[in-house]
Write a protein that binds this DNA or RNA. Structure first.
Lengths: 251, 251
DNA sequence: GAATAACGTTCGTATTTACGAACGTTATTC
DNA sequence: GAATAACGTTCGTAAATACGAACGTTATTC
């Protein structure tokens, strides 16, 4: 799909996007030197790119600290996504309803290069809760959202697109791709994907796949293991199917 | 501030940003040819850039329609801005309060290349209201937000950065930059900037400048002329100064 | 349904960008 | 406070991108 000449992609473009990515993962901005280290490019190269980005206000430059951060115009791009794609606001409404119904943290993710990219979260009102971060990724094979989405793929795609051997997480995680295939078959059958402390010890997750606007999402609820039982599981599954039905109906 | 070699900026970067900008201004996506026309670059050049953007999910490509639009990852960049910059959420809270208090549309903007860039809006509950669009720009000299922000600049910057002669809007708009200077002096004195049907016939606006996070914003309320009088004006000014005080206090 | 137009894609060379090395300047170290 | 390290910036050449022209393919026109 990329240009034949440079199969890796357009270098300057990749760098612009990497700079955005680096800046979005920071709290108080980055210096040029820090960006260079993260992006893995020499400062003489990023110099003009960074200045162009700052001049156009997609990146903001703080003169007093000498640090770059995400700019106002980039924020507006995100708003445009909301407006165009029917928005994620419908997801957020549904997620708030899920949290209200079962009292646990609800998360939304997609698959990005074989990993789960978390795009939205509504926190549990309880004190003990999860620490995942929006914009961060986790392996797909050991997360409920990952399995939920993969269950909608054909076997061949899963085998070719998922990095194997799997990244190691906890003892409970599925170790071989054939075992994962069996789990996915089970997800297709019952509609729910489970992560029984596979990603992190003591965290149980349940997820459903949701198709919306031609895209596959995974919607999950995470529960600390010590308050997880059959009753909680039933409640979560009920809340998740309600959310899925509501979201897929309006499309 | 740009690189000495290419005073206009880094070409590839400018193109990436232009593509983002073009995509953010559309409702249902653009084809490659359309993007080329908007950006003003040949398709052989944008080909690889666009594919690289789509591969990284910052841009999404709809195979059925052949159209590109803003991608999910770009949305996450916007969220990162919110998280980093203390967010615009505090502005939005304040704006909702303004609308609740005076019942008219409230808008937030900044200056971008001598024009007012609208970044947020909370609509009036009334039926007759405005049609401005988030992400769009208007001339600064004939808008309340523009004048509010310019009042915090020194005279030399205003004269050098504002495009003159002014773009023509309505008969009521200020025509000469010297007249604008007198108006800005008045804004500095009383704290409020006015647009008396200067941008659009029948629309009155009042704005205050707000400094937050090292950036200058303008917060305005727009009122249809037929329901504008001294009493309304007092109410709006009261609501705007409350909002400004609240926003600048927390910083 | 033939002809035309528009689209996305590929190619080769002209042009621009890339980046190691070196600069002056500002933090850090001792 | 001298010496060192790190930063942002500039330069020249090596290497990448840019883009007109031409391709096959898909819409449009008549």
């Amino acid at each position: 799909m990329s240009s034949r000449y440079n199969p890796a992609g357009h270098r300057s473009t990749l760098r612009v996007l990497s700079i955005f990515e680096a800046l979005s993962a920071t709290k108080s901005g980055l210096t040029m030197a820090e960006i260079c280290r993260i992006v893995g490019a020499p400062k003489s190269s990023l110099f003009s790119i960074l200045h162009t980005m700052a001049d156009s206000d997609y990146v903001s430059y703080d003169e007093t600290t000498g640090r770059y951060s995400i700019g106002l115009k980039t924020y507006l791009l995100g708003k445009a996504f909301d407006r165009e794609s029917g928005g994620l606001s419908s997801f957020e409404t549904a997620m708030r309803k899920v949290v209200a119904s079962c009292g646990e943290t609800c998360q939304l993710g997609v698959l990005d290069h074989g990993r789960v990219l978390y795009i939205s979260r509504v926190d549990s009102p309880q004190h003990i809760r999860l620490s995942s971060e929006i914009g961060k990724t986790l392996p797909a094979h050991c997360t409920a959202i990952g399995k939920a989405i993969l269950s909608r793929w054909d076997e061949e795609s899963v085998r070719s697109l998922l990095p194997f051997p799997f990244e190691k997480t906890t003892e409970h995680a599925v170790k071989h791709i054939d075992d994962l295939m069996r789990q996915l078959e089970e997800v297709r059958r019952c509609g729910f994907a489970y992560d029984h402390q596979e990603m992190a010890e003591g965290v149980e997750c349940i997820a459903v796949p949701i198709e919306k606007g031609g895209r596959l999402y995974g919607l999950s609820v995470s529960v600390p293991a010590y308050r997880f039982d059959t009753e909680v599981q039933n409640g979560v599954e009920h809340a998740l199917s309600d959310a899925r039905d509501q979201l897929e109906r309006v499309s």
